[in-house]
């Protein structure tokens, strides 16, 4: 069996060898590189770069038509509309108040979600990195939600949090007052932060665990010989040595927090009101959910967001590079 596979495999190579040789002969080794890059470039071009270009074009047009030829070129008008604000701190003074509410919500969401998620992931990773009983079990417990689809996550929590949900049933049983968790703006915001931490932290716990385990154990032994108290060992050794990993985790989670959409959309639909409407949902609402569809505005909003993501991605690249150098 293995021999057959091997024969086929080698046969395939032999099949390509001659034409490839001839191609290289006629193109030269240098241009040959492009032949290998071409498939990737085509796929990226078609499914990534072309849509980005189209998005830029759409952002400069208005109307509810899909064909670019039927749309009116308005230049930067969509951006002007989005950025038309009395004060960026008060969405009510903005022409597109919902966009700015979404920006504010996203800002708070990112700060709270990323902040608490990193803190909790770090604590979890530090605990899981010790020799505690049932370590493998707890690692699985933390990682399991990551494997769930965001929609499933949202439905599970909706089932827990809704008016007649598990949480309220428990509170009721314990004789405590129940709360309509998802209908109160503050609670709803708390829960989208909570649920998205729950759904995502396993991934970061895993990265941090890997980071912790890449710290050589002899450094801790040296610290032990140096009589280092546990808290000082954490502050002066673990955290500094984990910094590159933490940086990567931070930037990754920042990017993902800015892009948060699916589980929140299913859990709260962005409500109550616009209390949990984040940027992506605003873009979706404007571009697709409300009629007539305002593709131009949605495209402009997504470009503004792309700018923020670009900055974050550059940060991530810098962080990864630093990590590679330190490692």
């Amino acid at each position: 069996m293995a021999a057959i596979v091997r024969a086929l495999y080698e046969g395939a190579f032999n099949l390509f060898e001659k034409p490839m040789q001839m191609l290289q002969y006629s193109l030269g080794a240098h241009r040959m590189a492009w032949v290998f890059l071409l498939p990737n470039l085509l796929i990226f071009g078609l499914f990534t770069y072309l849509p980005i270009l189209l998005n830029v074009w759409y952002a400069g047009t208005s109307g509810d038509r899909i064909l670019l030829g039927e749309r009116d070129w308005t230049g930067a008008a969509n951006f002007a509309t989005l950025l038309d604000c009395g004060s960026y701190l008060d969405p009510n003074t903005c022409r597109r108040d919902l966009f700015w509410r979404a920006v504010h919500n996203t800002g708070w969401f990112v700060v709270l979600q990323v902040g608490f998620m990193i803190l909790l992931s770090l604590i979890a990773a530090l605990i899981l990195n010790r020799n505690i009983p049932l370590k493998g079990f707890f690692r699985a417990v933390f990682f399991y939600p990551v494997l769930l689809s965001p929609v499933v996550v949202a439905l599970i929590w909706k089932w827990i949090l809704q008016r007649n949900g598990v949480l309220n049933a428990g509170l009721d049983w314990a004789g405590m007052p129940t709360v309509n968790w998802l209908l109160d703006p503050s609670w709803a915001f708390f829960w989208i932060v909570f649920v998205s931490i729950w759904a995502n932290m396993g991934f970061y716990v895993l990265i941090l665990l890997a980071g912790l385990q890449s710290i050589p154990s002899d450094v801790y032994e040296a610290a032990e010989m140096d009589g280092t108290p546990a808290w000082r060992s954490l502050l002066r050794i673990t955290l500094p040595l984990l910094t590159p990993t933490l940086l990567v985790v931070m930037v990754l989670s920042l990017i993902r927090a800015v892009q948060a959409f699916d589980e929140i959309y299913v859990l709260t639909g962005g409500g109550p009101g616009s209390a949990t409407t984040l940027l992506i949902q605003y873009i979706y609402d404007v571009g697709f959910a409300t009629r007539p569809r305002q593709f131009g505005l949605a495209a402009a909003a997504s470009l503004l967001m792309a700018g923020v993501l670009l900055v974050l991605t550059l940060l991530q690249l810098a962080a990864t590079r630093k990590r590679a150098e330190d490692g």
Binding site: L182, G269, P272, G273, S274, Q281
Partner: peptide, 14 residues
């Protein structure tokens, strides 16, 4: 019923 209108955001039908 608050759940119907306050339970969603944007123009979502419920």
């Amino acid at each position: 019923a608050r759940d119907v209108w306050a339970g969603a955001g944007g123009g979502t039908y419920q």
